[in-house]
Design a protein around this nucleic acid. Structure first.
Lengths: 250, 250
DNA sequence: GAGTGGTCTAGACCACCTG
DNA sequence: AGGTGGTCTAGACCACTCT
C-alpha cells in the first residue's frame, strides 16, 4: 500500500509507484520527526503498531527505520523501543566534533560567546548558505576552550529567519554543542556537515583571543551544516593554532 | 545452520551460537575475499547459489553482503551479479582521496616516485604501524602533481615484510592510487583510513619539491591505513602548501 | 509476563542485464 | 528467455527491558 496516494492495496500495486515502499515509509517517518510529531528523546510506536497504521510489513518498517538509524536520527533500544535521538546525548555531542589535541587526545571544550549580531549576509555567506541578495544572518563569534585555555576561535553565520528564536546570551558559557540549541529552540536538526580544512593567517581578533601573534599560521576549518530537510543552516569558520582535525574514512 | 561448527540444522539451533548467523556469513565471505577465492573484479556466485551452498536463507545472505557493500568491498550490479570491488575502479580511486583545490575543485593527481628504501622503522613508525623494535619498513617519498604542478609531498612507510613484493620503479609516474598496487602486487586491500590534519613548517626537501620557502607553513595530514583484517599497513605523512582537505560527516 | 526490537525463514514478484 | 539483484510479505522464535 502506497503512503502517498490512496488506492493500491498490495505489494504489486505499490510497485507501480516510482519510489520503493521502504523509501516512502522512511520519508514519511522523517517528515513526522521534522514536524515534531515525535520529539527528540521521544519514542515511536512499536514496529508492529507502525505496520498496522501504515499498512506495510514489518520488514519494510525495519528497512525504513534502519536508514534513519544509520543517519543518526533514530536510536534502537532492544526491549524498550525506538526513539528520536536527542542532540544533547553524549553520542550526539561528539558526533560532529573533529578537533583533537596535538597528541591525539580527544577534546571536550566549553564555548564562550563573544558577540552576536544580525546583519546583511556577506557574499561568501550568501553563497555558502544559498541566500538571496537581501539575506540576513545571525552572526556569532565565540571561543572554545578547555580548562580556561583558549583553543578555537569561531565565526558562525546562521540564516536570520530560521534562527529568530535562538536567543543566546553574549558572554555566557555554553557546555553543549550549539546544535543542541538549534534543535531545542528553533526545531532545526543537523544531519550532515561538510568540512574543508586549510591554512590561514591569524588576524588581530584571532591573535588576541588565541594568544598568538598576528599573521601566525592557523588551521582553518570551513563547515557547512545541513538540516534534516537538506537546507543549509550554518556556515562556520573555525581557527586553531595547536589542535588537529581528525577523521576516519569508511 | 551455523557456518563454523557442523551440527545445527535450523534457525533455532543457529541462535545457540554466540554470534548472529548473518555476521558469521559476512565473515566467511570476507575471509574468502581476503584469501582470494574471489579476486578483485570477479563475481560471487548468485545469492541463490550462496543460499544453497551455505544453507542459509536469502535474507541472511543479503544482510551479510550489504555489510560488505557498505564498507566498499562488494559492489552490487542489478541484473548482473555481485563482485569484489577492484581498487582500480573510479569509485575506488577517489574513495580515500580527500585533497581538493583551494577553491573546492576536485583533484586528479599523478604521483611521481622520488625515493624508495628499506630501513629500520623510526619510533613513530613503529608506534603507528604496531611494529616491534626490530621492525623494518619500506619507505617511499613521492610528489603528487596535476599538470606538472607539484601539489603534495608525501612520505610513506609500509611494513617491509608485507610489502616485499611491491616493486615500484623510482622515477616512475603512477596514475593509480598506490592502494591499487598494494592490492594487485601484495594482496593487501585497504578498508579504512584514519587521518589527522595539522600544521607544520616546510623542511628543505618539501620546500624544494613544492616550490615554497623553507619554514613556510604547510598543511600536514598523517594517515594510518587499515587492511581488511584490521592490520595497520601504511603510515603516511602528506604535506601541501595550497590544497585543502575536504570531508563530509554523516 | 507482556511488550519491545533482533534474527531468520521461505517464498513471491519486479526491474534489470545479457545472450 | 533466463538469470541476476531489488523489493515486499507474513509469519516464527529469540533476547532484552520493564513492571
Amino acid at each position: 500500500m502506497t503512503l502517498e496516494s490512496t488506492t493500491p492495496t498490495n505489494a504489486r500495486a505499490a510497485a507501480i509507484e516510482a519510489r520503493p515502499l521502504y523509501q516512502q515509509t522512511r520519508d514519511l517517518l522523517l517528515k513526522r520527526i521534522i514536524d515534531g510529531v515525535w520529539k527528540p528523546g521521544g519514542y515511536l510506536p512499536s514496529e508492529q503498531q507502525l505496520c498496522g497504521e501504515l499498512g506495510v510489513s514489518i520488514g519494510t518498517i525495519r528497512k525504513a527505520t534502519e536508514d534513519l538509524v544509520i543517519h543518526g536520527l533514530l536510536e534502537r533500544q532492544h526491549g524498550r523501543g525506538t526513539r528520536v535521538v536527542p542532540h544533547s546525548s553524549a553520542k550526539s555531542r561528539f558526533r560532529f566534533l573533529r578537533f583533537v589535541h596535538g597528541d591525539g587526545r580527544p577534546l571536550d571544550p566549553v564555548a564562550h560567546l563573544l558577540t552576536q549580531t544580525v546583519r546583511a549576509a556577506s557574499a561568501e555567506e550568501r553563497r555558502q548558505l544559498d541566500l538571496d541578495a537581501n539575506g540576513k544572518v545571525l552572526a556569532l563569534t565565540r571561543i572554545r576552550s578547555e580548562k580556561d585555555q583558549p583553543l578555537v576561535y569561531e565565526r558562525l553565520a546562521l540564516p536570520a529567519q530560521t534562527f529568530a528564536a535562538l536567543g543566546l546570551e553574549t558572554g555566557e558559557d555554553i557546555v553543549e554543542e550549539v546544535y543542541v540549541f538549534y534543535q531545542e529552540r528553533c526545531g532545526v536538526t543537523i544531519m550532515r556537515t561538510v568540512d574543508e580544512v586549510g591554512l590561514a593567517m591569524a588576524d588581530a581578533l584571532m591573535a588576541q583571543h588565541l594568544g598568538i601573534a598576528i599573521g601566525a599560521p592557523v588551521l582553518e576549518v570551513r563547515r557547512v551544516a545541513y538540516a534534516l530537510d537538506g537546507r543549509r543552516v550554518e556556515y562556520r569558520e573555525s581557527f586553531t593554532a595547536h589542535l588537529k582535525y581528525k577523521t576516519a574514512l569508511e
